[in-house]
Design a protein around this nucleic acid. Sequence first.
DNA 1: GCCAACGTTGGC
DNA 2: GCCAACGTTGGC
Length: 145
Amino acid sequence: MKSEPSAFSIQALKRKGSEPWDGVRNYQARNFMRDEMKPGDLVLFYHSNAEPSGIAGIAKIKSASRPDPTAFDPKNIHFDPSSDPNNPRWWLVDVEFVKEAKQIISLDTLRNTKGLEEMLVLRKGQRLSIMPVNSREFKIIEKLI
DNA sequence: GCCAACGTTGGC
DNA sequence: GCCAACGTTGGC
């Protein structure tokens, strides 16, 4: 799961303990949260637009998916007037802090680590903010954190 | 700050 | 259903 640290960092998650992953307005990313993520699933927390960009820690899915309340709040920047409360368009999961990396696992490091060649986040033009990681890749990265 | 890559919107 | 225009993402 990606986040710009200037907006919400792994340190912010550590401080707060957990956080509703609201504001996602991309259908593919929503589908991962709504349909695929289950409480207890582990997450790589990625800092985008950062210095350096890379994996900043590990988090865990805390809740089952639920409608994103910010979509119904006209004052919220993520308000979506076409999302019907009776048939919510946008969903979120609550994410819980697990671990902060001793140092960021940078994109450069990821690219140079054997076994991570196929990682989605390393693909050119990949802008998706939530994407799956396979368990083999996860284990390799877990050792680096 | 630049800009390539991509997703979404809306006229037709 | 096509596709140009537009907005956003995110590495650099």
